[in-house]
Simulated assay, not measured.
Amino acid sequence: MIEEIFRAEWGRVFATLSGLFGDIDLAEEATQEAFAIAAEKWPKEGLPDRPGAWLTTVARRRVLDRLRRDRLFAAKAHLLAVSDVEEATMAETAFPDERLELIFLCCHPALAEEAVRLGRMLAALMPDEPEVLGLLALMQCAHARRAAIVTRRSCCWISRTEPVGTLR
């Protein structure tokens, strides 16, 4: 069903969007997104009365959303601009490598135990590096904090499930 509509309507939707907006790449992306949405929705909600019109409307709205988003970004791009003085200051204070990113990655809750093990291995390999020892200390603190929260939650749950004694 969708394959037949794809063959029949792809060219029409694409040509309509290309003519309206004058951007072939944008028209193609929006047409693809419209057919992807159709492939997701039509089996659940049923085929619309005019599939070509539905696809054209969805694709046109996608293009309009994209153009609005690009216009808003262009209007606010100057807020993201960094002056040369600020950039030089950041370059002097920034880490030469991705240490900060590594710290955040190692302290991620999903990697807690593995990260602490990795930190211990790094500390054993590079005992003279203060950054590695600081990273290990930070990871162990974060791990201990998560363990305390889990323990506290499990204690609260156990106390709620214990039978209540009789009144005297």
Results as ranks from 00 to 15, higher is better:
163 P>Y: 00
97 D>Y: 14
129 E>H: 08
38 A>C: 02
109 P>H: 01
48 P>F: 02
100 L>C: 11
69 R>S: 12
51 P>N: 01
43 P>I: 04
61 R>P: 03
89 T>C: 12
73 F>T: 12
154 S>E: 08
12 R>C: 05
77 A>L: 13
28 E>S: 06
16 T>L: 10
158 I>H: 03
133 L>Q: 15
112 A>Y: 00
156 C>Y: 01
85 V>A: 15
26 L>T: 09
111 L>S: 04
1 M>W: 01
147 A>M: 07
137 A>R: 15
15 A>T: 13
64 L>Q: 14
101 E>R: 13
136 L>C: 14
143 H>Y: 05
15 A>P: 09
94 A>Q: 11
114 E>A: 09
106 C>V: 08
43 P>A: 04
27 A>H: 07
106 C>Q: 09
46 G>F: 06
150 V>A: 07
154 S>C: 00
53 A>T: 15
1 M>S: 12
106 C>G: 08
45 E>T: 07
60 R>W: 02
102 L>N: 13
122 L>A: 14
125 L>K: 11
35 F>R: 12
26 L>C: 09
81 A>I: 05
45 E>H: 04
155 C>Q: 03
91 A>P: 00
87 E>S: 14
14 F>E: 09
150 V>P: 01
137 A>M: 07
96 P>W: 00
90 M>E: 12
126 M>S: 13
47 L>Y: 02
71 R>C: 08
157 W>H: 06
56 T>D: 01
125 L>T: 03
52 G>V: 09
93 T>W: 11
104 F>H: 15
88 A>P: 05
138 L>N: 13
60 R>T: 14
25 D>K: 11
112 A>T: 08
11 G>Q: 10
76 K>G: 12
113 E>P: 02
44 K>D: 06
156 C>H: 01
164 V>Y: 00
